[in-house]
Amino acid sequence: MNPLLHDLQKKQLVWRAASINQHKERVSTGYKRLDDALNGGFPTSGLIHIHSLVGLGEIRLVLPAIKDKTAHQLCAFIAPPFELNAEFLLAEGLNLENVMLIDTQDPQQALWSAEQCAKSGACAAIFIWHQKLSITQAKKLEVAALKGDCLGFLFESGKHTLNNLPVSLSMSLERASLRTSQPSLPLSSTDLSDKNDALDHQDDSTDEHQQLSIKVNKQKVGWPIPSFTVKVPFKAKLGSPMQNRRRARSNAANVYALHTKRN
């Protein structure tokens, strides 16, 4: 073999499909199907490009992977598009003392901060929201993240995103129910009088709202993977309590039965 190639392979800079098992060090995502797709989980460090709209559960998808590390290390949110909710982060099990919020309007400053955070070695994870990251900027962040042993999550929601960014992993997220083109119940803000009727039809489809369809565009170790679904659950049991009661009234004998079932 070419000695240079051999050298690169030894340093794990070149990946061969035959040696997929040599990259054992992965961070489990907490979602089994995602772990399977990514050969065991996220890489331990590097930039992860997530192409997703805001509000698909994209953060809940990645938080379990970094939860343990944030007990000792910082977790930086750089210029989030909206205000972060502390209650949410607590509920997700993050140590709030280690959550750092960088608030800047200037994209250049945001990128600079991201790079500093990534390479400092103090951050377990950084979250950046940035549109149209250039290849050089992405490479810079990727190198910084590898240097600082940090997971960088780059969220992009724009339609025209580059898919050739030099990142460790690139994924696209979509709501699974939209992919299957199941018609969702239209509910306009003006016409809500028949809301309760609409809720009645939700019984079987509550689970479906928690399904997220993930497509792996590219990953450093492994092949691109077409869409598959992962359940990113809500904390509470979905469905209106009213609706439960109504169902209980029809199905079960009395209210007590409902309580025992819940426990």
Partner: peptide
């Protein structure tokens, strides 16, 4: 039991201007 709380809050609530499907509540 944790309550479902959104990760992002709008700086100020905005009027709803699109079609939505209720998943959970009230």
């Amino acid at each position: 039991v944790y309550l479902d709380r959104p990760g992002f809050l709008l700086p100020a609530p905005e009027l709803l201007a699109e079609k939505i499907t209720i998943i959970n509540g009230p």
